[in-house]
Nucleic acid binder design. Structure first.
Lengths: 143, 143
DNA sequence: ATGCAACTTCAAGTCCACTTGAGGTCAAGA
DNA sequence: TCTTGACCTCAAGTGGACTTGAAGTTGCAT
């Protein structure tokens, strides 16, 4: 059992952030000693996962959905599969961007946006994005 | 030359977003017809890149820094290299998360956080995060 | 028993990335 | 010429993710 400052130190999350996460139902304290929250060790892993999911671009709401208040981050497979696929897409975009960046470092073109090599590197992600724009016409500009 | 609604349609960005990006200096219009903005075709690529960089987790401010108002997204190599490395780290995290998710789909453990296989999959990203927390002690909890 | 640092709650504030709304302008077609 | 609709500006509003501040409470060392 950890108190909030120990958990904060262990996780790198500020106490206010931990209280906030509890308030919105992302984590919970196992009990109290007086007023003071006590956390199980398990929440450290949970917090790391939350932070991971955030860098993957998911909102706290989405994270909460796929990671119930109980320990089990379970839900029906289709939802998990969809999340995994979404991450895959993001990985591809990031890879393209990274490669584009590394190319720019070694490329002497005056305008990189016009460099055919650069364009080829990022075109996967680019055409994908454009496709998205087209596909979401019914609900325009909400993404 | 495109007007704002054409660019909006082509890029999937709302007109208000395009005006906002111009206001903060991320894109610019090549001129006006009367009051109405006119954009060069090039900004389409620029917009896609911005959106890409956003999904990579960079703020508009950071994006602006590495992508001057002119066409060239150039800056000294060390900055670009740092960005590329940051993306690499993110890719690793996302890969771990995705694999963790896919594992959970096929794992029958009652609590996945305790599943050693799951833990092994995401441990790279986890220990990395913990390392971060430790390293930024001087400026605690600002990440 | 007393002091106090570390916790607590709750409301309000902040920052980012936009969106919305009110009121105005203008180019082009009927 | 007149209308209309798509643009314009600028200020204010929104939602997400927290942080900050004020005021109160408490476990623990002295």
């Amino acid at each position: 059992m950890l108190d909030i400052s120990e958990l904060s130190r262990a996780s790198g999350f500020s106490p206010s952030k931990l209280r906030y996460y509890e308030e919105v139902g992302l984590i919970r304290s196992a009990g109290r000693r007086g007023l003071k929250r006590l956390y199980e060790d398990e929440v450290k892993t949970r917090i790391s996962l939350i932070s991971l999911a955030q860098t993957a671009g998911f909102s706290l709401g989405e994270i909460k959905e796929t990671m119930g208040p109980e320990g089990r981050p379970d839900l029906d497979r289709t939802v998990l599969a969809a999340k995994a696929d979404a991450i895959d897409v993001r990985i591809k975009e990031l890879t393209a961007l990274r490669d584009g960046l590394r190319h720019v470092m070694n490329c002497t073109a005056e305008n990189h946006l016009d460099c055919p090599r650069f364009q080829r590197i990022i075109c996967v992600a680019l055409t994908k994005k454009q496709g998205d724009a087209k596909r979401s016409k019914r609900n325009p500009n909400k993404g």
